[in-house]
Nucleic acid binder design. Structure first.
Lengths: 209, 209
DNA sequence: TTGCTTACCAGACAAATGTGTGCTATGCAA
DNA sequence: TTGCATAGCACACATTTGTCTGGTAAGCAA
């Protein structure tokens, strides 16, 4: 008999194994789990799987081959592609087509709704750790809180700045002492969205389109 | 016998059915195809499936249940999860499991091979735009080029620094004037991998585990 | 006609796979 | 000790599932 492992440890690995296989598109059979973990009996694998079902981490379709699935809530993050906009044109950006340069994958279909991506061009945000060439993922919204990093429309160009409130009005502040804050006329500030993620690829990044 | 349909028409619909099922995560069995299309014989479904394989639209793993897959090139862009390692222990990090804190989704299965992720803890790389709390995605490799940002092992702790060559030896340089370079004994430098991506989530990020 | 192809059916067999019963061994707590 | 839980094993059985052999019927071209 194989040595006994600490309680739950093997089961965690089995859970990840099943999830991995689901990612690849083909759920494992009980015997595939058995072989993957070197169990000498099918039943050992089966008991672990059934325990995972009882724990609510897996679900199963009884009788079906390869019937184990991830439980609700643990579902695989389905990938979605967010458009990488190049030139952000005048107006509202809401006009359907802005000639995306490509598409950025995000791990949640839901989160991708109403998102777009931009490539940062200036050095005005380097103290916030946002460098030229970085990608910012932006959720579209026309308002934001002071302190948020936002994408705003300044003279028909999209710019990334931190939103600040000063003297009762909203301003766009760079995070680089070499740059000056932008003080829009009251009511003239057009916010395109809020930056919710920053990505920097130091090595070749696959482009989707 | 059911009425005979025009050549290829039923087969196209079977292809779409299989693709749909693959997208949902559970490839169909031959008999499930049979029932979905109301065939009175298993063999009818089987012949269509085998024809799709012969046409190069599907592939199959013979003998396996639910063994039909989409052919190369027709596959969906698949995501993979990269382990987010918390404490990087001594030694080589190559020991199988290091108690991942979670898993980070990356958009390519292939790229995920041999990768891991770390959460940055210090402020030593802020001038490179790497802030505390940022995630770095690392490809495992034991050597790197000067100029690369690497993860190296310093006194049993993983640290992110830029690799530099000075006076003929490799050093680990921070990107923050408040910190000093680390000068390992020649030959004592343990490189765990190269940083290939930096991510910062400014808003709640889903954690997978 | 003949011959060929495609679409479909019937029934059987064998391999893959899910499931059940009974067992050993270890650790822990009452 | 007893009792209980977890980890694992052996073996059998039934269902699911892939596979095979042989058939019918319709359309089309030589």
């Amino acid at each position: 008999m194989s040595p006994k492992t600490p309680p739950g440890q093997t089961r965690d690995q089995i859970f990840r194994f099943v999830r991995e296989r689901l990612f690849e598109g083909l759920p494992p059979t009980v015997r595939e789990v058995q072989q993957a973990f070197g169990f000498k009996s099918v039943q050992t694998a089966r008991e672990h799987l059934e325990t995972l079902v009882a724990e609510g981490r897996l679900t199963k379709a009884a009788g079906l081959s390869r019937g184990y699935r991830l439980a609700e809530g643990l579902a695989l993050p389905a990938m979605a592609l967010v458009p990488l906009l190049g030139q952000v044109q005048a107006g509202e950006l809401t006009t359907a087509v802005e000639e995306p340069e490509g598409y950025i994958p995000v791990p949640s279909r839901q989160a991708a709704e109403g998102m777009f991506a931009l490539r940062v061009r200036g050095r005005s945000m380097i103290d916030a750790g946002i460098l030229p060439g970085d990608l910012v993922l932006v959720r579209r919204q026309s308002a934001a809180e002071p302190g948020d990093i936002v994408v705003a429309l300044v003279e028909d160009e999209a710019t990334v700045k931190r939103l600040r409130r000063r003297n009762g009005r909203l301003e766009l502040h760079p995070e680089n002492p070499e740059f000056f804050p932008i003080v829009p006329e009251p009511g003239a500030l057009v916010i395109l969205g809020k930056v919710i993620e920053v990505r920097r690829h130091l090595e070749g990044m696959p482009v989707y389109d």
